[in-house]
Design a protein around this nucleic acid. Structure first.
Lengths: 131, 131
DNA sequence: GTCCCTGCAAATCCTTTGCACTCCT
DNA sequence: AGGAGTGCAAAGGATTTGCAGGGAC
């Protein structure tokens, strides 16, 4: 079991992610944190994000755009990814039991209550297309 | 509107993908096709796969492992991704209407009937963990 | 002092792209 | 002939990693 040591960088990364309600990429967090710690490196941001994921303090999201996104909200919820604008929206559903049941029946395994993704086109992009 | 020209490479890629029931990566297809066309290049495989996706003849899957996966089955179905072994399983569900409704309510948009992903641990990996 | 953590840069992995050449039509 | 498709190799974008120095305990 590895012992953790305090690091202001890690605290800053965590605080930065917790203060936002979107799902930023490592890159975006890096730019933001750079304002407070101009010397922080991208490698450190990645290392700490992955560490925080391992500790279960944040989650890594797979949004299909080739970049990892991160979410400070670890409570059970799903995500909707707009394939047109790239936005990632929270889907706070209560049907977890049902979906788990269904997936379990067919996959014979366990479905994570926070790892279900819906892809589509969000309201704004739908509207834009009709113009 | 672009005119398509026949290419034996493209036919081979399509045939190869259609003959399998898993969801291979470009890399895996490349290796397989190389047995028949030793000179085919990885770039050609990628180009054609993307072309076939645009034509709607196959689908590109986002499985969270950093690689694109491809699926010759374009009928509406969902996918289950095992986070332990990386396997991608089909989930042939009939609840599309319900899930669409739910997602639509919260996202205000349209959810693709074939683009819903469940992440978890498959039956085999669940079993393995208890040993 | 020990060992974790950092910054930096190089390396890695997957995918795309530029270019000259080939092969459909 | 014209232009889409190919092979090759280089470029590109995101993430990881090796290493020497710095900081927590």
């Amino acid at each position: 079991m590895k012992t953790l040591k305090y690091s202001r960088q890690r605290e800053s990364i965590k605080a930065c992610l917790m203060s936002r309600h979107d799902h930023p990429t490592a890159d975006v967090l890096y730019s933001t944190i750079r304002e407070e710690y101009p010397n922080i490196s991208l490698g450190t941001v990645y290392r700490n994000l992955n560490l925080l994921v391992e500790l279960g303090e944040i989650r890594k999201l797979t949004c299909g755009d080739g970049k990892d996104h991160f979410d400070a909200d670890t409570s059970p919820h799903y995500h909707f990814v707009c394939q047109d604008c790239g936005r990632v929206l929270d889907l706070p559903m209560e049907q977890i039991g049902d979906l788990n049941q269904l997936a379990q029946t067919h996959a014979g395994g366990r479905v994570d209550s926070h790892a279900i993704y819906f892809y589509g086109s969000c309201g704004d992009c739908q509207k834009a297309q009709t113009h």
